[in-house]
């Protein structure tokens, strides 16, 4: 999975990197480079972590007592320091897993604003919606192709994005069907 840009429309809130790294450390101590690789492989998709992010996150986790120093791996190279998760870290992962993500009103705000502004300015709101539909469908095609070529993990990740884009499109169609009504209300 490495076609850039496909997740531009994707509505997943930025992942809590700290929690993801802690979760990966539950499998045993690792050094920073190893963690970055594991993260990128499983969750990175279009957005691999920068080393800077990994080390700044780890030093924050260290400061908060969620990870601890687990010694230096044999061999040379600058970053052989290994980290282990602490009990407080495990508790934090548990809290993260049991707390639902905030259901965000994602794109509607922007799209709704575009539709209203088009109507207010006498432009075509239907064109705004048609353009958006076409862009959504292009992204959905790309995800669908990727799904066909991918393994189960790819399929599940793409399906998540596909269902969310589909929800946007349903809102779009419903709005398109009510555009005349909305025009009257907006211009009243």
């Amino acid at each position: 999975m490495n076609t850039p840009g496909v997740y531009m429309m994707c509505i997943v809130a930025p992942m809590s990197i700290g929690h993801a790294l802690l979760g990966l450390l539950e499998g045993g101590p690792r050094h920073g480079y190893d963690l970055k690789r594991a993260y990128d492989e499983r969750f990175g998709q279009d957005r691999p972590l920068h080393y800077g992010q990994v080390y700044s996150t780890l030093s924050r986790l260290l400061k908060n007592g969620f990870v601890t120093d687990a010694g230096v791996e044999a061999g040379d190279g600058p970053e052989r320091k290994r980290y282990a998760i602490t009990d407080a870290g495990v508790t934090d992962v548990e809290r993260w897993l049991s707390t639902p993500e905030k259901p965000e009103p994602y794109l509607q705000n922007t799209l709704y604003a575009k539709v209203v502004l088009a109507l207010l300015s006498g432009r075509s709101a239907a064109d705004v919606l048609d353009t958006q539909r076409s862009a959504h469908l292009d992204t959905m095609r790309e995800l669908t192709r990727r799904k066909s070529d991918g393994d189960l993990a790819d399929q599940l990740i793409c399906d998540f994005a596909l269902f969310h884009l589909e929800a946007d499109l349903r809102w779009l169609e419903l709005t398109a069907a009510r555009i005349d009504q909305l025009a009257v209300e907006v211009n009243r």
């Binding site: 469908l137 095609r141 669908t144 269902f163 884009l165 589909e166």
Partner: peptide, 9 residues
């Protein structure tokens, strides 16, 4: 259905 249409060109 958009997800079905996503199989189109």
């Amino acid at each position: 259905e958009a997800r079905v249409a996503a199989y189109s060109d």
